[in-house]
Amino acid sequence: MTAASIQVSEPPLVLYTLRRADDALILGHRLSEWCGHAPAMEEDMALANMGLDLIGQARELYIYAAKVEGKGNDEDKFAYLRDVRQYRNLLLVEQPNGDFARTMTRQFFYAVFADLYWRAMMMSRDATLAAIAAKAEKEFAYHVRHSSEWMIRLGDGTDESHRRVQIAADDLWAFTGEMFVVDDAERGLIDAGIAVDPASLRPRWLKTISEVLSEATLTIPQNDWMQKGGRIGHHTEHLGHLLSELQSLQRSFPGATW
């Protein structure tokens, strides 16, 4: 016997909130996979701290989505009982950890965006999202700091580390465009002052990325073909495996409390 997926109605604000919640959960889950396996014990502490920040953000956002939806769903139903096609996260955050260079590059690309995004969201007309933003912005500011310092050290460290981090940047680049895409569901929220237009954040994102990559002696990837689909449930193959692990107990023991 397995637990079936829940039905989620996705009026714009619920969908919008779930998308950000899914970003946070999936990236937090990825970082938690490192626990006990990091390159140094000090870095184990850092990766777990960032993972905990993200899982905390996901919980707050799911709780809010459940409240707005008002259909009796809760944080765990959203996390554990939605199928891969119901997940709304960016493709970037579901990409596997790979080596430490890939994990840090993914964190760097995302955190620089998320820091700008949540800072802007502090002005949201939605008081709950604005409050979540105030906390998330500080957390991401630290993720930016930490991941930037590692980008610089890996890029300007040894030939081996330079090679690895350049490959990671090149491979992940195509997943960065999706962060700045707006669809019709979000346009109305942006017009209402509840959401911010991510496209407006791109110049600043690119500036920080360029500065850090340049200090790291790395080359900005030139490929400008961008992948997308995560926001409507068209994921890469990696997410399904992540969810089968994440959801295994809830799916195997329907209705149990843990």
């Binding site: 140094a40 000090e42 502490m45 850092a46 700091r145």
Partner: peptide
């Protein structure tokens, strides 16, 4: 105390280890 390659990493590690 802790181990780190340089002062910047040491400061971040101190934050992550000793101020949780």
């Amino acid at each position: 105390s802790l181990h780190a390659a340089d002062a910047t990493l040491a400061l971040q590690a101190a934050r992550d280890i000793y101020t949780r």
